[in-house]
C-alpha cells in the first residue's frame, strides 16, 4: 500500500505513514463490525442450545440487535462513583479496548495481508495479551468497591497462570515452525500433516498442545467456563459492576475482540491460517481470507458451544488445572518436541 501512496507524489515516509493509518482503519473498522455481529451470533448459538429464540426483534432475524444495544449504551449517562479514582476509572476500559485492538496488527488474514509482518510476531501477541490484565486490574481497584476488587485479584492471578502454559505451548509451535513470524508459521503448516493436511493439529506431538491452547485460550480471555472474574453468583458483575454506558461497552467490545483473537490464533497456529484445509490445488481457488474467516468462525462456534454447555469452574479447580496439569504437560511437550526435532531435523 505504501507504493500506492508514493505514486500519488508523497515521499516514502509520509506514504508509509498514511498507508499504515489506512491499514489500521482497514483492520479496526471491520473488526468492530465483526465484534458486533459475533455478539449477536454468540447470543443466537447460546439461545439455540437452550431451546430459546435469542434476539429476533431488531432488524431481520434480530441481526441489528448489537447495533441497537450499542446505540442504547451510547445514549446512557456515564456514572462515576463518588468514591472511585476518577482518572484510572475512566482509563481502564480504554486500556482494555485498545489492547484488544493492538494485537490484531500482526494477524495475517491472507497471504501478505498483514499490517506489521514482524519477526517477533508471536512474542508481540504474547506481550499484548499480557497487557490485557491491566484493564481489569485497574478497573477493579479504581472502582473502590469490594466485588470489583475481588474480581480484579482473581483476574490477575488467572491470566498470569494461564499465560505461563500458553507461553510453553507457543514455544512448541515456534520450534516446529522454526520461526516467530506468524505468516511464516502459516506457511510452515502447508502439507504439515501427511503431506496433504494443512495444519499442525494433525501432528501427534502438537495435537495435545492445540487442545491445551484452546482451553487456555478460554481461561486467558476469561470466557465461560472460566469466567470467574465476572461470576454473577459470587461477584455481582465482577470488575464491571460500577461501570455504565460507553465505559461498559468498551469492556464488552474489548472482551469479544479478545475472544475473536484467540479464535484467530487457534486458526493461525494450528489450523493453517489462510490455507485451505487440504493441500489440493483446486481448493486454492477460494481466496485465503475466506478460509481464514471460516476457520475462525468455527472456533468461535466452539467457544460459544462450550459457554452454553459447560458449568463454571470453581476457583481452586481453575488454579489447579493451570498450575498442576497444564504447566507440567506443556513443559513436557516442549522437551518432547525439541527432542524429536533434534533427532529428526537438526540431528
Amino acid at each position: 500500500m505504501t507504493a500506492f501512496f508514493e505514486s500519488l507524489g508523497m515521499n516514502y515516509e509520509w506514504a508509509w505513514f498514511v498507508a499504515t493509518i489506512c491499514g489500521i482503519l482497514l483492520i479496526a473498522l471491520p473488526l468492530m463490525l465483526a465484534v458486533a455481529m459475533i455478539i449477536y451470533v454468540d447470543r443466537k448459538i447460546w439461545a439455540a442450545m437452550a431451546l430459546r429464540r435469542g434476539p429476533n426483534v431488531v432488524g431481520p432475524f434480530g441481526l441489528l440487535q448489537s447495533f441497537a444495544d450499542g446505540l442504547k449504551v451510547f445514549l446512557q449517562e456515564t456514572i462515576i462513583p463518588s468514591a472511585a479514582n476518577k482518572g484510572l476509572f475512566l482509563i481502564a476500559p480504554i486500556i482494555t479496548f485498545t489492547v484488544a485492538l493492538m494485537a490484531w496488527a500482526v494477524m495475517p488474514f491472507a497471504e501478505g495481508a498483514v499490517l506489521a509482518d514482524i519477526n517477533v510476531g508471536l512474542l508481540y501477541i504474547l506481550a499484548i495479551s499480557s497487557l490485557g490484565v491491566y484493564g481489569v486490574v485497574i478497573s477493579g481497584w479504581a472502582s473502590n468497591s469490594k466485588y470489583p476488587f475481588f474480581s480484579a485479584l482473581r483476574a490477575a492471578a488467572q491470566m498470569i497462570s494461564y499465560e505461563v502454559s500458553i507461553g510453553f505451548i507457543l514455544i512448541c509451535v515456534i520450534l516446529w515452525a522454526g520461526t516467530n513470524n506468524l505468516s511464516d508459521i502459516v506457511m510452515a503448516q502447508k502439507g504439515a500433516g501427511l503431506g496433504i493436511v494443512n495444519g499442525f493439529f494433525f501432528n501427534i506431538l502438537l495435537f495435545p498442545m492445540w487442545v491445551l491452547f484452546l482451553i487456555s485460550g478460554m481461561a486467558e480471555t476469561a470466557r465461560a467456563p472460566f469466567d470467574l472474574t465476572e461470576a454473577e453468583s459470587e461477584l455481582v458483575a465482577g470488575y464491571q459492576t460500577e461501570y455504565s454506558s460507553m465505559a461498559f461497552a468498551l469492556f464488552w467490545l474489548g472482551e469479544y475482540a479478545n475472544v475473536l483473537l484467540m479464535c484467530a490464533l487457534n486458526t493461525t497456529l494450528f489450523f493453517g491460517g489462510w490455507l485451505p484445509p487440504l493441500d489440493i490445488g483446486i481448493l486454492y481457488v477460494v481466496p485465503g481470507f475466506i478460509w481464514w474467516l471460516l476457520k475462525t468462525f468455527f472456533f468461535f462456534f466452539v467457544f460459544s458451544w462450550v459457554k452454553a454447555t459447560v458449568p463454571r469452574f470453581r476457583y481452586d479447580q481453575l488454579m489447579r488445572l493451570g498450575w498442576k496439569i497444564f504447566l507440567p504437560m506443556s513443559l513436557l511437550f516442549v522437551v518432547l518436541v525439541s527432542g524429536y526435532l533434534m533427532l529428526t531435523r537438526y540431528g
Binding site: 504474547l126 506481550a127 499480557s130 497487557l131 490484565v133 491491566y134 486490574v137 481497584w141 476488587f149 480484579a152 485479584l153 490477575a156 492471578a157 491470566m159 498470569i160 499465560e163
Partner: peptide, 12 residues
C-alpha cells in the same frame, strides 16, 4: 506482563 502485575497486586 508478569513482574509489574505482581507488584501492582501487592501494592493494591
Amino acid at each position: 506482563g508478569a513482574v509489574a502485575v505482581l507488584f501492582l497486586f501487592v501494592v493494591m
